[in-house]
Design a binder for these strands. Structure first.
Length: 291
DNA sequence: CATGCGTGGGC
DNA sequence: TGCCCAAGCAT
């Protein structure tokens, strides 16, 4: 019952055993909560920036109930400059749901995890596998890129996850649940350290000749161009500036003070309203504050 | 299903 | 120097 690329698993597991980074949320002593927090923080944010915030977060809130006991604004403040602060709000919401619906314990079932705010397919599978040893295919951007290259022979995966990708991931997933979980983290690590988006280190890749893309001579990507993400001058940047003022203030700030953070008044007002609508800020008698 | 949502580092 | 990204999610 061979599938294309089935020769990947052994070499990747051996490589991971020798090259895995020692990350706090991967240690045997790490709680499921530590894993969940790391997965929220790692959504679109590099490991190096997550490390210090994750450490401080777990020290302050060792359990979901500890976080749920505080106002959501404290989560937004502690999130600091990790970016996409709605994740902080959702993590607080997840902690509250875990306390109220799961007796304070991070659930192990995919469906229960998936129902938490801020938890999509990837995070639910990752927490089920990495925190609880469940057998789930974990399809993140790293895994998708590795499989696109090694199995499909193309440089980059499709824009969104396809049925074909899921079938490949399922076919490769080892039958033994703990081994499946290790395989998943191992192939992610390979994508993060070796099979990178740009300048992949094929010379030191354990997959070697089993990689269809490398064997084919690493043909250039010929799919649709990926959209470039602009930032300067966007509402995202404006919202970030406004929220930074709120984070750095002890309490509410007068709305006039937000003007110092962004010149364009029309855009500034629009962004403030969107922050209020998102629940990242609230109006009080004294001005604008974190929730 | 395409789009909006932060931030800082590497080349 | 700009440009491109880095363990996604919700709508």
């Amino acid at each position: 019952m061979e599938v294309a690329g089935s020769g990947l698993v052994g070499p990747v597991l051996a490589w991971y055993d020798a090259h895995a980074r020692d990350l706090p949320w991967r240690r045997a002593s790490a709680s499921a909560w530590s894993v969940l927090v790391s997965e929220f923080m790692l959504q679109q944010t590099p490991v190096s920036r997550v490390l210090p915030v994750h450490e401080a977060w777990l020290a302050r809130w060792p359990t979901p109930a500890d976080l749920a006991a505080e106002p959501a604004g404290e989560a937004v403040r502690a999130w600091g400059r990790l970016g996409y602060p709605r994740r902080a709000l959702r993590l607080h919401g997840a902690a509250t749901a875990i306390r109220d619906r799961h007796g304070g314990a991070v659930p192990a079932e995919y469906d229960d995890l998936r129902a938490l705010p801020g938890v999509g397919d990837y995070t639910a599978a990752a927490v089920a596998a990495f925190a609880h040893g469940r057998r789930h295919a974990v399809l993140d951007t790293n895994v998708r890129r590795v499989l696109a290259r090694a199995v499909s022979g193309v440089e980059f995966p499709p824009r969104s996850v396809t049925r074909a990708e899921r079938d490949v991931a399922e076919a490769l997933l080892p039958a033994d649940p703990p081994t499946a979980a290790t395989w998943s983290v191992a192939v992610m690590e390979l994508g993060a350290l070796v099979c990178t988006a740009d300048r992949p280190r094929c010379g030191s890749c354990p997959v070697g000749p089993a990689c269809a893309w490398n064997t084919a001579g690493r043909p250039a990507y010929d799919g649709p161009p990926r959209p470039v993400q602009t930032y300067a001058g966007t509402d995202r940047q404006c919202r970030g500036r406004l929220l930074a003022v709120l984070r750095d203030a002890a309490g509410a700030v007068p709305e006039s003070r937000l003007a110092t953070a962004w010149d364009d008044e029309v855009q500034r007002r629009r962004c403030l309203e969107s922050l209020l609508a998102d629940g990242l800020a609230v109006r009080t008698g004294a001005g604008i504050a974190l929730p």
